[in-house]
Every structure is written in structure tokens, then in C-alpha cells.
Design a protein around this nucleic acid. Structure first.
Length: 482
RNA sequence: GGCACCGUAGCCAAGUGGUAAGGCAGAGGUCUGCAAAACCUUCAUUCCCCGGUUCGAAUCCGGGCGGUGCCUCCA
């Protein structure tokens, strides 16, 4: 089998053929840093982080670029509202971006360019477009001329005439065609600006990705990704500029992730159902959020609701418990395996990845791996003292960890995971660790004297606070009921 | 209005020509003082509807119904 990727350009899954064998150059549109990130950003981040990890797992040498848009209308507006400089606003939101994305265990891309660091490259590209007659200057602005680019509309599958008649595009007297978009905007007083051959100004939104992609990955690279909302106009315009300048389509495979809905409604500010990443991770463990985001294929819409996140949290508990249980048996020696010593599991993992990065299928495999790990644990526990079944357990444990590393899950030691999630739960129900320990102690005292009525009452008390008791051979443990 | 996508069990969700993954919930069981956890068994003769192509379709084609997104800044 070979890797197949759904290409927005063709509307089909296509066999992936990298420009350079064994290597993948990938550009993903990042965020405009004018505000905190919401869960839509989280999805895009997590999805492409999974793609990055999966490509590496397949053995590709990957160069992953994700940009920051740090000059733009919204930034200017927000900074003015808050009475701070654009620079300050940008710095603050980039710091917050890293806090949020780190909490979701995103790997850092190989390059994270900021638009303002590539003004010169953008100007070069604009000059080329002007020289080729693909763009024109008008009133201090430079516009791309859509009519002169015959492939315009290829990505979003629409044609120029339809778009013009759609007529929801703001009329601008300086434009030859209402669809023409700005490559360079003349500066208004107080706005960030750079000198240019067309007067002081700043770049249009789309040109930055064209310029940075070309600079860091070359005129043509393999994969370009982003949210579905970027297909039109952002990526359409990007293709127009890049191809207009270099003659080559910039990316061969265009990947777009679907939207996040909230309780089956479109997430939007006017509906007031806009969740930031930090809102959600205040309520649910970040890894549960990540698990949930990967449980649906990246192209489908995904619905956010407490009920679903709770279920994901329960699944994550299950996975970490399998880890916890097997590590107790295996001891400290079995950490960080890099391969799966089970051929069929490995083959299924590879084919799930190769089928357009089917994380939902990987997730199913992951849960099955936890199940077989539990079975192997049971087997070892049954033969205590004889060391039997440990080798078998180690294999399943390795499968669990390796699949986890592809999904970016199971990142913490299990002890730490349970400590954090239990503390979070205790805070929610207003109990302390000692109170729980005392109740468990009392219950065990009652059990010793066969006073089961008292013991069961105590258990009920805890259960009312979603705390479940587990009597094991080594004593009583407790878990959070999801 | 134009363009695109989607419609799989009570719920979530894979599956794009070869006879329905996985999870939650439900039912029964092993274990347990009773539980819980874990494991086992069970849970869609059928994939919105109607036609068509095919030896064979949830998967392809046509039509219908229902839902969503984009066309304006947006992951």
C-alpha cells in the first residue's frame, strides 16, 4: 500500500507522490494572533500535528512550516481598542498560543515564520507579479488581477463570473474587477508600515503565505493545509499569486480540516457559543480534548458538547489505566518502545495512516491495543511469581505506546495523569484527598468486622460524588466515575 | 440564487465495488461479602427513499427528501 491523501483540488483521494522521494514539505496556515485561540484552532493544530507525526511514522523526512499572521486589520483594530501597540498584542497572543498548543501536546513545527519577518520576500513576489502583468498598482495599493489568471477558482470550484454576480464583494473603485485582492495596502496614519516601491504600506493577507512558503519550502512543495474556511478566498488567492509569479502551482496536495460545531450549532461569536482552548481545558483534561478531536476523521465536521468530552475523558482513563496496570507488572524497564513487535497491529496502523490519515481508525486500533494489554496483564497476574506472560505483555504494551505516540496521546506518566485528573475532580466536588482517604479507611474498618451495611453506605457517599472504589489485592484504590 | 459536502444502530463514528471497524449506552456472564475495575458474550440481514449499472453496491450513476458549509474576516 501507499499513502493516499484527499486532495481538495481534485475532490478525491490521490496516491501521494512526493516531489523528492522520501521527503515531505508541508505548509499549514497558522493563526492570526489578535486574540486567544478557540477550539477550531485547536482542531486544525491537532489534526496537522497528527499528520506530521504520522508522516514521520511512515518514514518520511518531513519539513513542517506553520506561520503566524502578525500584521493584519484585526490586529490593528484590536490593539487600538485595547490601547496597546500591535507588537505588544502580538507578543501576548503568541505566548498564549504556545501555552494552549503545548497543553494539547503539539509538536513544534520545523519553521514558524512570522509574516513581518518576510516583508522583503513579499515585495519581491509583488514586483514579479507586476512585471508579468498579473498585478497592477492603483492609488498606492497593488492588486492581483484575477481575470488574468486562468486557473482562478480551480481549488474552490467556482468561476469568476459566478463570483462576480454573487456580488457580496465590497465595491472598491480602485479595483478593475471586484474579485481582485490586495497584495499591498497603502498605510493609513498610525498603522504599521514598511517602505516599498509603491509607497509606505503593509502586505495584503494572502501574500505572506505565498512568500514564506516559497522562501522556506521552495516554489513548489508537497502539502498545503489549513481549515476548510481557508479554501476560499485565502488558498485560492495564494495559488493565484504563487503560480502567477513562479509559473508553478505552489502545492501538490491541498488538505483541509472540517469545522467544529458547538451542540450541533455553528460556532460563532454572535451565538455566544465561542469556546477558547483554555475554556475547554479548564473543564476537561487537554489530552481528552485531543483524543476527542482525533476520534473523528479530519475532514468531517465535529460537534463539541460536554457529553462527548466526558466520554473521551472516560476513554482516556481506560487507556491510562491499561498503562498503569502493565507498568506495575513490567517494572520501570519497559519504557519508550519505538516499534510494534506485533506484525498485524503494525500493518493495521500503517494502513490506517495511509488511508488519508484516518485517525478514527487508528483510535479503534488504539483501544483494541489497550484491551489486549489488559488481557495480557490478567494472564501475568494469574501466574504471579513465575514470570510467565511478561514477554507477551511487553509486546502489547509496546503497541499501545507506539500508537499513542502517533496520536500524540499518553504523553504523561500514568501516575501524573491520575494525580492531575483526580485533583481536578476533587476540586469540582469539594472533597479533599484526605477526606477520601479517611472514608476509604472507615469503610475498610467496617469491612473487617463484616459490617457491610456501613461499608456500603460509605461507598454510596463516595459514589454520589462520582468516586468509585476498587478493592484490589494491594488495597483499595479510587477512581473518578465519568 | 451559485458551488461544495453530508445522511451508517438509542447516541458518537470508521468503512468509496466483495458481503457492516471501534466507542458510549443496554442485556447476560466471570470475578467480588456486595460492588467497582478488567475480561467474555450479546446488541444494524442492513447503511434516508426510489430507480439504474454490476455476478455482486452502504460504496458507482440518475432522481427525490433531509441537513450542513462556502460565496464577507474566520482553523
Amino acid at each position: 500500500m501507499t499513502l493516499r491523501i484527499y486532495n481538495t483540488l481534485s475532490g478525491h483521494k490521490e496516491e501521494f507522490k512526493p516531489l523528492t522521494p522520501g521527503e515531505v514539505r508541508m505548509y499549514v496556515c497558522g493563526v492570526t494572533v489578535y486574540d486567544r485561540c478557540h477550539i477550531g484552532h485547536a482542531r486544525a493544530g491537532v489534526v496537522f500535528d497528527f499528520v506530521y507525526r504520522a508522516l514521520k511514522r511512515l518514514g518520511f523526512k518531513v519539513t513542517y512550516v506553520r506561520n503566524f499572521t502578525d500584521v493584519d486589520d484585526k490586529i490593528i483594530k484590536r490593539a487600538a481598542e485595547r490601547g496597546i501597540s500591535c507588537d505588544e498584542l502580538v507578543r501576548e497572543n503568541i505566548a498564549a498560543f504556545y501555552e494552549d498548543m503545548d497543553s494539547l501536546f503539539l509538536l513544534r513545527p520545523d519553521h514558524e515564520p512570522r509574516a513581518t519577518g518576510y516583508i522583503a520576500q513579499m515585495q519581491e513576489m509583488i514586483k514579479t507579479l507586476l512585471a508579468k502583468g498579473a498585478a497592477y498598482e492603483s492609488g498606492g495599493d497593488v492588486f492581483f488581477s484575477v481575470e488574468d489568471f486562468s486557473d482562478y477558482g480551480k481549488l474552490s470550484k467556482r468561476n469568476v463570473d459566478e463570483l462576480v454576480s454573487g456580488a457580496r464583494v465590497a465595491v472598491n473603485e480602485d479595483k478593475k474587477n471586484p474579485l481582485d485582492f490586495a497584495l499591498w495596502k497603502s498605510a493609513k496614519p498610525g498603522e504599521p508600515k514598511w517602505p516599498s516601491p509603491w509607497g509606505e504600506g503593509r502586505p495584503g493577507w494572502h501574500i505572506e503565505c505565498s512568500a514564506m512558503g516559497k522562501e522556506l519550502l521552495g516554489a513548489q512543495f508537497d502539502v498545503h493545509g489549513g481549515g476548510k474556511d481557508l479554501v476560499f478566498p485565502h488558498h485560492e488567492n495564494e495559488i493565484a499569486q504563487s503560480q502567477g509569479a513562479s509559473g508553478l502551482p505552489p502545492a501538490r496536495y491541498w488538505m483541509h480540516n472540517g469545522f467544529v460545531n458547538i451542540n450541533k450549532e455553528k460556532m460563532s461569536k454572535s451565538l455566544g457559543n465561542f469556546f477558547t482552548i483554555r475554556d475547554v481545558t479548564k473543564k476537561f483534561d487537554p489530552e481528552a480534548v485531543r483524543l476527542y478531536l482525533l476520534s473523528t476523521h479530519y475532514r468531517s465536521p465535529i460537534d463539541f458538547a460536554d457529553e462527548y468530552l466526558r466520554e473521551a475523558q472516560g476513554t482516556l482513563d481506560y487507556l491510562y489505566r491499561a498503562v498503569h496496570r502493565s507498568e506495575k507488572l513490567l517494572g520501570a524497564g519497559a519504557h519508550a518502545p519505538s516499534e510494534i513487535p506485533l506484525e498485524d497491529v503494525n500493518a493495521r496502523l500503517v494502513s490506517a495512516i495511509e488511508d488519508d490519515f484516518n485517525s478514527a481508525e487508528v483510535m479503534a486500533l488504539f483501544i483494541e491495543a489497550a484491551k489486549t494489554t489488559n488481557m495480557a496483564c490478567k494472564d501475568v497476574e494469574g501466574k504471579k511469581g513465575e514470570g510467565g506472560g511478561l514477554a507477551e505483555l511487553a509486546k502489547h504494551y509496546a503497541a499501545l505506546r507506539v500508537i499513542g505516540s502517533v496520536l500524540g496521546l499518553l504523553n504523561r506518566p500514568s501516575g501524573e495523569y491520575f494525580k492531575t485528573t483526580k485533583a481536578r475532580h476533587l476540586a469540582d466536588v469539594g472533597l479533599s484527598e484526605t477526606q477520601v482517604a479517611d472514608l476509604i479507611h472507615s469503610r475498610n474498618e467496617a469491612r473487617k468486622t463484616k459490617n457491610f451495611a456501613v461499608a456500603d453506605t460509605i461507598r454510596k457517599t463516595l459514589l454520589d460524588r462520582q468516586i468509585e472504589i476498587e478493592d484490589t489485592r494491594d488495597g483499595t484504590e479510587w477512581w473518578v466515575r465519568r
